[in-house]
């Protein structure tokens, strides 16, 4: 890493890998922010597991682009990131964190299942491993969403708030898959959680084209500080 920025030839393949990888990295990074602050010790370990899976998926995908993983993660500016906006939103409370992970994981799981049969051998191999991990993320977060939705008045209110705020960001997440298939998994869990499913209305988007929320710049400023401050250093 002798430079402080990189230019990428975004072929359609590279671009689709970056979208998947950036989703995983940014969401993994957000999830890792919980470390040391989770509501129970067991959940501390579970959230770290999920973050580790996501960061591992991001690394495998970056590596498959032919660019150095650390250059992609640490030397791109916000407009070069291709993640969905949903991934970069701040963690909020535990209900928001769980609801987001759930909504994204359901989409990812469908996507990985489709990609397992891909002609691209890198993608097929990554998908096979990622699907197993993601199926666990879906299970874990669905169980929590049900507990929170069907728990106390406060937890129900927080979970409902989270779903309503997040809903407008789900369009971008389901753009590459069949939204009806996504809803077939999401809706029954919301029912079990006694949560009201918001109507599909205006959807936020822009992340895939590098038009992000205000939050990504802060996240990257923190994440990238060392490689940016010491160009060329090896860590």
């Amino acid at each position: 890493m002798a430079t402080t920025s990189i230019t990428i030839d975004e072929t359609p393949r590279v671009r689709s890998f970056l979208a998947l990888a950036d989703d995983a990295l940014i969401l993994g990074h957000r999830t890792s922010e919980w470390t040391g602050h989770a509501p129970t010790l067991e959940e501390e370990l579970a959230l770290a597991n999920i973050a580790l899976d996501l960061i591992g998926q991001a690394r495998a995908l970056y590596q498959a682009t032919g660019y150095a993983e650390d250059e992609l993660a640490y030397l791109r500016d916000p407009p070069q990131f291709r993640n969905a906006l949903l991934a970069e939103l701040p963690n909020g409370d535990f209900a928001f964190t769980i609801a987001r992970l759930f909504l994204v994981s359901v989409a990812s799981d469908l996507l990985w299942r489709g990609a397992m049969g891909s002609d691209d051998p890198d993608l097929a191999a990554i998908a096979a491993k990622a699907e197993k991990e993601t199926a666990y993320h879906v299970r874990h977060t669905a169980e929590w969403l049900i507990r929170l939705g069907d728990g106390t008045g406060e937890s129900h209110r927080r979970a409902q708030d989270a779903i309503e705020t997040l809903w407008a960001y789900t369009g971008e997440v389901t753009a590459g898959i069949d939204r009806a298939a996504w809803l077939r998994v999401v809706s029954p869990i919301l029912v079990r959680a006694t949560l009201t499913q918001p109507a599909d209305g205006w959807m936020q988007s822009g992340g895939r084209d590098g038009r992000h929320t205000e939050h990504l710049g802060h996240l990257l400023a923190e994440m990238q500080i060392l490689p940016r401050s010491y160009p060329g250093a090896v860590w």
Partner: peptide, 17 residues
């Protein structure tokens, strides 16, 4: 959140876990 490479980030997160 400030680990200087993805390998270090994953290793540190796993360690703290």
């Amino acid at each position: 959140t400030r680990a200087p490479s993805l390998r270090r980030k994953a290793a540190l997160l796993a360690k703290v876990q």
